[in-house]
Amino acid sequence: MSEWSVTEPRKLSFDDPVTALQVRIVNGTVNVVGTDEGSARLEVSEIDGPPLLVTQKDGTLTVAYEDLPWRGFLKWLDRKGWRRSAVVSLTVPVGTNVEVGVVGASAVVSGTEGRTEVKGVTGDTTLVRLSGPVRADTVSGNVEAQAVTGDLRFNSVSGDLTVVEGSGPSVRADSVSGSMIVDLNPGGRPTEVHLVNVSGEIAIRLPHPADARVEANTASGTVSSAFEDLRVRGQWGAKQITGQLGAGNGKLKATTVSGSIALLRRPPAEDEPWDAEPEDAPQAPTDKKVL
């Protein structure tokens, strides 16, 4: 095993193979990039507080605080321990399995093909062009997934989920009050989308032509649909959107207690990315069904 204690800005290169990466920091930033190069590199450009312990053993590269374990990470609420920060950038082989844990820090993971798991207490996470399975668990941090082609799992208390150009086999998300905005990539494979929320809003934009079996339910929220082929039921209280679009190869299921649900249609041709996030409950165009 090789080990380094990083107390000041420093760069390290690792000649031994790296197949797994584990990063755990408090405050600051983590940036992980996949590369076709066979070796891994680390740059700690800023550090304040206790040292970061860097270890390499049996193909696993770890960059973490010694007192911040992965097990029970989301319950680490030692406020005195939050008085630290680091800015960490890593380049790893594209097939590396990545685990990132952040408390009050932002994280970006891009261009990898292995399994990715992110845990965050606070701080936003951005996931870009990941082709392996992805799991993100947060307390209040937001997650944005761009052009992710692997299975995506998301769990949060109050963090928001935004999926842009999603084309993976499945998107599954659970939240209490965070909003969920899912934009599915046109021309992608049939996708299974399963979203569960309590009070947060849900907006799903389907490609043209759409191809999915749809079931959306809310106990007391509003619903809106941009698709005339779907049935919208319920005038007071519980409301439901059901039906089939196209051949029905994909599956879309959304459930909320008091949050709103909007099913939006992507235009047949579009050059600009979808970046309009609703400030309030998502609304469909005024000439569409709204209850």
Rank of each mutant, 00 (worst) to 15 (best):
V164H: 09
A276D: 15
G248H: 10
S5A: 14
E113L: 02
G250I: 09
G248A: 07
P133L: 04
P282Y: 06
K288I: 01
R84Q: 02
V23K: 03
L52R: 01
G81C: 00
A64E: 06
R205H: 07
V257W: 04
D78S: 09
T222W: 09
S225P: 13
T256W: 03
I204D: 01
F154E: 02
R83Y: 00
A105Y: 05
T112D: 04
T60Y: 10
I204K: 03
A136K: 06
R24S: 03
T191R: 02
V44P: 03
T96E: 05
S224E: 15
A40I: 10
R153Y: 09
D275K: 08
V63D: 01
R129L: 14
V121M: 02
V232D: 03
T55L: 11
R189Y: 03
T91E: 14
A281Q: 11
E192H: 08
G28F: 04
G141V: 01
E8K: 13
D48Q: 08
G95E: 06
P50G: 12
P69E: 08
G248K: 05
G188S: 11
D48I: 11
G34I: 08
T55D: 14
A203G: 14
M1V: 15
P17D: 11
W274A: 07
G72E: 05
W274C: 07
